[in-house]
Write a protein that binds this DNA or RNA. Sequence first.
DNA 1: TAACCAGCTG
Length: 644
Amino acid sequence: MFKFQSFPRTATVFPALFKRTNHHQSLPQLQNATTIVETLTLLLKQRQKLSQISQIHARITTHGLSSNTSLVFAIVRCYISEKNLSFARTSFDRCLYPSLLLWNVIIQAYSKKQNCQESFNLFRQMLALEDGSRPDKYTFTFVITSCSQQNTPIYGDIIHALVIKFGCESDTFVCNSLLNLYSVFGKMEEARIVFEEMPQKDVVTWTSFLSGYTKHGKMDRAVELFNKMPERTEVSWTVMISGFVGMGMYTDAIHYFNCMLSDDTVKPNEAILVCVLSACAYLGALDQGKWIRSYVENIETLKSANISTALIDMYAKCGKIDCARSIFNGSSKRDVFTWTSMISALSMHGLGEDALRVFSQMSNEGIKPDDITLLGVLNGCSHSGLVEEGCSVFDKMESIWGISPMIQHYGCMVDLLGRAGQLERALEFVRRMPIEPDIVIWRALLSSCRIHRNVKLGEQIIDYISQSDPCGQGGGYVLLSNLYASLGRWDKVDGVRKQMNDKNIELRTGCSWIEVNGIVHKFVSADKLHPRITEIHQKLNQVLKKARTEGGYITNTNPVLFDLSNEEKEQAVSWHSEKLAVAFGLLSTHSGTPIMIVKNLRICDDCHSAMKAISRVFSREIIVRDRSRFHSFREGICSCKDYW
DNA sequence: TAACCAGCTG
């Protein structure tokens, strides 16, 4: 139960900073108390640097003015604008009777720092003071905003009650913050009540309500609301577009972006472009991505680290690693995200040595890596067979960079060792892991067993998983099916299928995308929806026939889950979405044009062999980006050197 | 005073 507690306002010990120093001589000579206050207030109103603020602060202290409301307010504001919240807090704590304005300023400062706990604590202190200030619309706006930045929904109901108690329930700013708070935590019924009862709604009201739907994947409701909005800002468009991206509805995201461009009232901002670039990256929509690059090149304010990061990611995921490098080399503003984006880009292209080089350059420039950076580095080592280099990075994670490995880092390590054929070492690594291995870890190990034909270990792992947790997570079922199928144990495959049916778990459908003349075409396995599907099927049959007779392609039916006849299996793998996409690519582009395909799952053995043969027979570069990395097929050889 | 965005193991 929530209780307001009394918080003693004890003065904190002043740091040594406030000792008298020679610098004081540069300040004007002060006469009497009024003059002192006026002079110091005037000085603080001019924008001062931190060292000067400290000098003035020292002077305030030596004159016994630490509790002077207007001076403390000025000094707190100065410290906050210099981003020194701890000095601001020290000054605040010295003030015995803070004004409402001072409370608001300090609460807002913690809110901006995303320190909800502290801004809420201060709010409670404020309420607990017997003769203290009463919160106003500003106080509520700041406190509610800080609560909405939390990970867990706390204090919402209490604050709503207090908003009513203190008569702020008709203020637009307060209600917008409340509406946003409910929206953030998906409490859409409460949000709706606030929305409907608001006497005056503005565009922020509508956008906050809209974000509740988009953040929680209710895109139908969001579209409905968006269509009703009397006015839209670039933030409203960002909310819609990022909602689509969050739900994996990338083509819708790009469609909305194009609609926004035809609406003259708003211009794309950084947030929108970053969202759209991530949609382009996912779809491999290079033309749309390039358009954004040329757009930002003419606008100085859009040349940011965030945009560079998104452009690097987009180019890399569209197969253009050299363009990604050129963005990186040309970007003057780089942060840890930009570096990580470049490292991950090189890693997914199988350029592990380059990724390590960039990582070392990053360290030399004094940029501290974070957990995702190291994931990128380890991933690069794993895809390039750099076993010892990867192990060395992993061993240094805690001691050098102070980063505790997460399950993802362990996953990379298992993959690194297993893929290189060091299965025993990988298994030992899993046994020694301080955290419980998840299905992904087992999957990495199993995938290595399959690559290195270690049926015995594969079966042991499968037995272990089945006993300990019969694939509590959906992905595990697919893994089991695939492995049993590759071992020809169709009775077991049937059993897994039955369990999946019983638990209503659906297989994730394989999809591939290909962009032709700026339009993204999507294919699912055994697609029937594409308008030119009959023509595509005919083309695919011809292509595969030629690949067999002239390219030495032999159908590998292992990836097929079910116990079908050989002929049926052959047909099942023939309709894989990436094969349909490549047939469409050959049908709709001029000879010699590279074909770029994006797949949502990993490419199967059979499609990998087929792509090699097709690249040779048709003299085409075929780039397939699968869930895990890039495969660039040229003249019958893949850039992954069959190491995947 | 309030609403929006990035790099991610198998």
